[in-house]
């Protein structure tokens, strides 16, 4: 029961406000802030008149992907992430910056995710997800383009899900009342790991297939900033 409930609570990948403690999101903010500065400077240096409208459209696409709920076995639903596509087309720093904007708008406009959770989500999905996608794509280049893209995107989704599952699973240990009652998210890693990783294994596979289609289009148009 706890697992099913946690699964329903977690299936949306990014963490909403109220589930993680200040002991988690304040250090995450301290880590994310300088990375945002670096990413912003690199984006400013790279951004050209041709790249800018493409980045706008791809960011909007990533936002849309992270908004459409997909039905999953077990009566739950989930959504794709979209950061792998951004990372493979524009590179990890640009993807991190663009996906942070996606997460900010998700929190402020749509009410999904949260402001306090934004640094955690941005680091886990935007930063680690983007770098994982690029690293796997480069590392698996010998397998050919299609397997490299598929495994890179799937791996990025799973890595982000793993980090968020661990962040959530540590909350009962990080923040609890004197009697041991969790103040924030009440489930440990034994619940959060399967609740996040199993559904996202399916979501990641679907997202990888969609990304491959768009990636091939981007390669034909010579839009890619990342070399395999």
């Amino acid at each position: 029961m706890a697992r099913a409930t946690a699964s329903r609570a977690l299936i949306g990948m990014h963490i909403p406000d109220g589930l993680i403690s200040p002991q988690t999101y304040l250090p995450a903010l301290a880590l994310a802030a300088p990375l945002w500065v670096i990413a912003g400077r690199r984006l400013r240096d790279r951004l050209g008149d041709e790249m800018l409208p493409r980045l706008a459209v791809f960011t909007a696409l990533a936002f849309l992907l992270s908004t459409v709920m997909l039905p999953l076995p077990g009566g739950t639903s989930g959504h794709a992430v979209g950061v792998g596509l951004l990372a493979l087309v524009f590179g990890p720093w640009t993807a991190f910056m663009a996906y942070s904007l996606v997460l900010l708008l998700q929190a402020v406009v749509v009410g999904a995710g949260g402001i306090t959770a934004l640094p955690v989500n941005a680091l886990a999905i935007g930063f680690v997800g983007a770098w994982t996608a690029v690293a796997l794509y480069r590392g698996l280049g010998l397998l050919g383009e299609a397997p490299a893209v598929l495994l890179a995107v799937w791996g990025a989704v799973m890595t982000s899900a793993l980090i968020l599952a661990l962040v959530l699973g540590l909350q009962p240990w990080l923040a609890h009342a004197p009697d041991g009652t969790p103040r924030f998210f009440p489930f440990g890693p034994a619940v959060t790991l399967p609740a996040l990783l199993i559904p996202h294994a399916l979501i990641g596979a679907g997202e990888a297939a969609l990304t491959l289609l768009i990636f091939r289009h981007a390669r034909r148009r010579r839009w890619l900033a990342v070399r395999g």
Partner: peptide, 25 residues
């Protein structure tokens, strides 16, 4: 109102990049 907010956010994204482009030019 969920979808109206989604479309509003899409508009914000495209609009923000549009403003950035105008500023660069």
């Amino acid at each position: 109102g969920h979808w109206s907010r989604v479309f509003a956010a899409l508009g914000y994204i495209l609009g923000a990049f549009g403003l950035l482009m105008i500023w660069r030019q």
